[in-house]
Design a protein around this nucleic acid. Structure first.
Length: 220
DNA sequence: ATCCCGAGGG
DNA sequence: CCCTCTGGAT
């Protein structure tokens, strides 16, 4: 199947079955989303949602977070991955927001990436979710699912290469939705360790399934 | 043992 | 390119 048709089928399927996808991270404003996304690195969204209410209550805006100690922030995030690094990142991020951006969340990749703890992936999530800009944040799910579905070539071995492959074929108005589609598909169907190919509707054009599918129905 | 919406540093 | 940070779920 041609690559263009893969993208067409991918978009058609999710447009029909999941027309309004959105992040599963809980947040009430761009600042809270930024905090949640920084925390979400190598951690499940469910865990972030468990600890974020107390964190947001104690640090409701960049000003209070900037004035906090990393040690205190640590006590709120000790159950997420890399709590020491992330506590420092959050305090540094809030300080940069206050000192360089007047406490507002910047709206460009370049400015966002000057914030401690914010790399290309996190910056693109903010731009996509907050500003609805056509940026493709490539995380572990997007990376894996894109390869399996044949939306990115196997030669795309870095997140940036996968990002470019996707951006070259997804119409701009679908990019923010496609980001969530790839994540949700990866999280609930196309799992890293044991993908649920038996309930997947996309096996017809999946390169991964093409390799692992049984040769005969019913064989053990 | 492997994975989860990675980023910073060497 | 590599390595480290690091807790909880499966």
């Amino acid at each position: 199947m041609q690559k263009k048709e893969r993208f067409t089928r991918f978009i058609e399927y999710f447009t029909q079955h999941y027309p309004e996808p959105k992040t599963e991270l809980n947040f009430g404003n761009p600042y809270e989303l930024l905090v949640a996304v920084i925390l979400s690195a190598q951690c499940t969204d469910k865990r972030i949602n468990q600890i974020s209410p107390a964190l947001f209550a104690r640090f409701p805006e960049p000003e209070s977070l900037a004035a906090a100690s990393a040690d205190e922030v640590f006590t709120y995030i000790r159950s997420v991955s890399y709590p020491n690094n992330k506590a420092k990142h959050l305090v540094g991020m809030a300080n940069t927001l206050m000192n360089q951006f007047g406490g507002e969340i910047p709206a460009t990749v370049e400015e966002l990436q000057t914030l401690p703890g914010v790399g290309r992936k996190t910056a693109h999530v903010i731009l996509s979710v907050v500003y609805n800009e056509p940026t493709m944040a490539v995380d572990t799910h997007v990376f894996r699912v894109s390869h399996r579905l044949g939306l990115a070539p196997l030669t795309a071995t870095t997140p940036l290469a996968v990002e470019k492959a996707l951006m070259a074929h997804i119409p701009k108005q679908y990019v923010p939705k496609a980001h969530h589609w790839l994540i949700l598909h990866g999280r609930y169907v196309c799992l890293a360790r044991s993908p649920k190919c038996d309930v997947c509707a996309l096996t017809e054009f999946c390169k991964y399934y093409e390799k692992i599918k049984p040769g005969f129905v019913g064989m053990s």
